[in-house]
Design a protein around this nucleic acid. Structure first.
Length: 752
RNA sequence: GCGCCCAUAGCUCAGUUGGUUAGAGCGCUACAUUGACAUUGUAGAGGUCAGAGGUUCGAGCCCUCUUGGGCGCACCA
């Protein structure tokens, strides 16, 4: 005879159940062929590495919605996939190769990219295993990778489309250059950290009348103007005058200009304008027609324009120049200030703004539609306050630099005719139409053409994710059925990088919004509400936690007590608490199963009893029965309402409280009386016979059994989106003696 | 500089059209328990919901201001 184990053994059961679900095809939207589509495209994790607890949080929220809608009867599709993560992955593989003594430049582009693919195969598989461990009910047959064939062709199509509409252009502009990564990065990939710096006050030479103040003296070799505020009386007499200067051997003509951007109060109220190495100065140069001199190169070293400083690293040049200024008595003073240093969000290295030939997407023409979609409510952002952040970003957007000087990524689908392009790279010549080809394969002899060396920003391909994963640009049946997707669940930290771009790209390329709702979750922090970091040693690995407490416990702990857009603090004690909950469910089910089948409570051996049907006799209801049945109906309604409003924490908390304290503590206790005395049954045959002989007693017992089964099985369905494993494990036990239960709880029904 | 969030029990947090006695987890106290579960149960302590003012029959929730903490965007050269 089968026994009901004493404790919930998640470790043995979870992966077995998952495999069973996957094999049975329950993750496919086709289990509800007539249902309306409910679609979530997973925010594709970077192939770079392991998933962290933040991924577990997002995945849990996504899977919760998917499982809920599957139970509602919707054609639920959860599209899995991964992102090639350009810079991040290239850097990691480069490092790995260097450790093996292999230089990527000696290896060559093709071989290097092969190495990255090998790496992707190895680590990508690990990530997929982790997603499965979290319980993600993805349709794995529809798994995508941003660099797979279909998505690559979607990327080319998108590029060509935008180019033809004149929304993509190439030009030499000041960009954020990361010398460490060796590539340009976009504006929003730059982070600012406050640092202590020195502000140096000096003159270029003794003949120059104005003292300027700067934290970066070494860039002053590239100055072509000094800007002052138009209302600043001190400098009025110099405005529009030109001066020949000699800064330690470097000769320049400096024009004094008036610009409102200059703050009279800061420093001396006079700014040395360095058009090539400051965005603001670049703009001033455009406005005032100043020449631009590049004194720092792509390696973070001084160029020949810096005279004897050529070849020095930026910091070295700064030191040397300050020494010179001191010795020539040009330095008036230096003060300590706090300022913001721009760093690369990937590598943390200092950003050098410098002019560079890059590809850009014009953003302004895409902004209005993207704003309108949210303003009209066509796209809903949860929580709503992030709409403001979204609008603010769109209102202040600048063109998006999409070319990256990397090898790992989508190579830009642009070809130049060899005979014509020789000077192009350096001089930004306008090529004639015949000499540039934008698309997949240039016409005529391929040998006549050379493809652009650069790849596209990772976010260019992820911007297409909701539709490229469904087959776009082809009008596949999946695309027709499942696009637009329903919910985009992701972290608030990538609202600009990703969410806004998907909306813009979706509207431009498909003419439709890419998703109806954006649900933004917060950061996962530790028990003391600190950021998780390796140096603090407070990083929680989801796989460790799953091994220890079970996936269900982790999922519940992540959801209950957390709200959208708000960071969530989590520690082992909370997870442990919910592990106790999963065990409580298991044991309550054990009790119910054993009593209903007349099994043995001590050994856990199930009896022969079966439930014939679930028709409850209203006339036999006790006060306890009525109470729990009433509460049960209420709970169904409120839980449904909460989930529909994305209030997952509230619904989870309610289920927890209801199941444990109302069903277990109150009703199950009350049911013990209604079911008759166990001791009597065990020890006294006569009493047992008497009980069975009494028709009302037996009817009461049977009615109570039916109520127990009804409440238990329906509660399991309600809890399944939160804790998929223990609920299905119990469901499988119940199927032994309860009629008409679906093969798996995950394909049963939400409210019968 | 512009904007956003937070301040509720010892700790971490829920509390969404304003409506009984403000909740959960963990922690704490006392007791119980060979009968599903000690990964348990019962009972309990613990809150002037940051402060001040306002709207209202009624405010943790709405409005204004103050204080303290955090974040985002922009950026000072």
């Amino acid at each position: 005879m089968k026994t009901f184990k004493k404790n919930w053994e998640h470790f043995e059961t979870e992966s077995k159940l998952y495999n069973h679900w996957e094999k049975s095809g329950y993750f496919k939207p086709e289990v509800n062929p007539d249902g309306k589509p409910f679609v979530i495209a997973i925010p594709p994790p970077n192939v770079t590495g392991k998933l962290h607890i933040g991924h577990a949080y997002g995945t849990t929220l996504q899977d919760l919605m998917i499982r809920y809608h599957r139970l509602l009867g919707d054609a639920s599709l959860y599209i899995p996939g991964m992102d090639h993560a350009g810079i991040a992955t290239q850097t990691v593989v480069d490092k790995k190769l260097r450790k093996q003594g292999i230089n990527k430049n000696e290896l060559g582009r093709e071989k290097f990219v092969e190495e990255v693919w090998k790496w992707k195969e190895e680590y990508g598989g690990e990530i997929l295993k982790q997603l499965r461990a979290i319980g993600a009910s993805c349709d794995w047959d529809r798994e995508r990778f941003t660099l797979d064939e279909g998505l690559s062709s979607a990327v080319r199509e998108a590029f060509v489309h935008l180019y033809k509409k004149d929304l993509i252009y190439r030009g030499e502009y000041i960009v954020n250059w990361c010398p460490k990564c060796g590539t340009a990065i976009a504006d929003d990939e730059v982070e600012h950290v406050t640092q202590k710096a020195k502000l140096y006050y000096f003159k270029y030479d003794t003949n120059f009348p104005i003292t300027i103040a700067t934290t970066r003296p070494e860039t002053k070799f590239g100055d072509t103007a000094v800007a002052v505020n138009p209302g600043d009386e001190r400098y009025k007499e110099f405005i529009d005058k030109e001066f020949e200067i000699n800064l330690d051997g470097v000769k320049r003509t400096i024009k004094v200009i008036a610009d409102r951007a200059v703050d009279k109060e800061f420093g001396t109220g006079a700014v040395g304008v360095t058009p090539s190495h400051s965005l603001i100065d670049w703009k001033m140069a455009e406005d005032h027609g100043l020449s631009k001199v590049k004194v720092i190169n792509e390696y973070g070293k001084m160029t020949s324009e810096a005279g004897r400083y050529e070849g020095m690293k930026v910091l070295e040049a700064r030191e040397k120049l300050v020494e010179y200024l001191k010795s020539s008595e040009l330095l008036e003073k230096e003060t300590d200030i706090e300022n913001n240093l721009s760093i690369c969000y990937r590598c943390g290295g200092a950003i050098e703004p410098l002019p560079s030939l890059q590809w850009f997407v014009k953003m302004k023409p895409l902004v209005e539609k993207a704003k309108a979609a949210v303003k009209s409510g066509e796209i809903e952002i949860v929580p709503k306050r992030f709409e403001k952040v979204y609008f603010h970003w769109l209102d202040n957007i600048r063109d998006w630099c999409i070319s990256r000087q990397l090898w790992w990524g989508h190579r830009i689908p642009v070809f130049y005719r060899k005979s014509a392009n020789l000077e192009f790279k350096n001089q930004n010549l306008k090529l004639s139409k015949d000499d540039i080809f934008v698309g997949e394969t240039p016409p005529g002899n391929l040998d006549d053409w050379v493809q652009d060396e650069d790849v596209l920003d990772t976010w260019f391909s992820s911007g297409l994710w909701p539709f490229s994963t469904l087959g776009w640009p082809k009008e596949t049946s999946d695309y027709n059925k499942f696009y637009p997707t329903t919910v985009m669940e992701t972290g608030y930290d990538i609202i600009f990088f990703w969410v806004a771009r998907m909306i813009m790209m979706g509207l431009e390329l498909t003419g439709k919004i890419p998703f109806k709702t954006v649900y933004l979750h917060g950061l996962v922090r530790d028990e003391q509400n600190r950021k998780m970091s390796k140096s603090l040693g407070n990083v929680l690995d989801p796989l460790d936690l799953i091994a220890k407490y079970g996936t269900d416990a982790l999922r519940m702990a992540l959801i209950v007590g957390s709200t959208p857009g708000q960071d969530v603090a989590i520690g082992e004690s909370k997870i442990k608490g919910y592990r106790n909950f999963t065990n409580k469910i298991w044991n309550a089910s054990r009790f119910v199963s054993l009593r209903v089948t007349d099994g043995d409570l001590q050994s856990g051996e199930l009896g022969e009893g079966k439930i014939a049907d679930l028709n409850i006799d209203e006339k036999l209801l006790t006060a306890a029965d009525k109470k729990i049945l009433g509460r049960h109906e209420e709970i169904k309604k409120t839980v449904t309402a909460h989930i529909n409003k994305f209030q997952f924490s509230l619904a989870g908390e309610e289920l927890y409280e209801y199941f444990w304290h109302e069903f277990c503590d109150e009703y199950i206790e009350a049911s013990k009386d209604q079911l008759g005395s166990v001791i009597a049954r065990k020890n006294d045959e006569a009493i047992l016979k008497k009980e069975i002989a009494a028709p009302e007693g037996l009817a009461m017992t049977n009615n109570t059994k039916k109520i127990l089964i009804k409440i238990l099985s329906e509660s399991l369905v309600l809890m399944h989106p939160y804790i998929p494993f223990v609920t299905d494990a119990v469901w499988q036990e119940l199927r032994e003696f309860v009629p008409d239960l679906a093969d798996s709880i995950m394909i049963s029904n939400w409210l019968k």
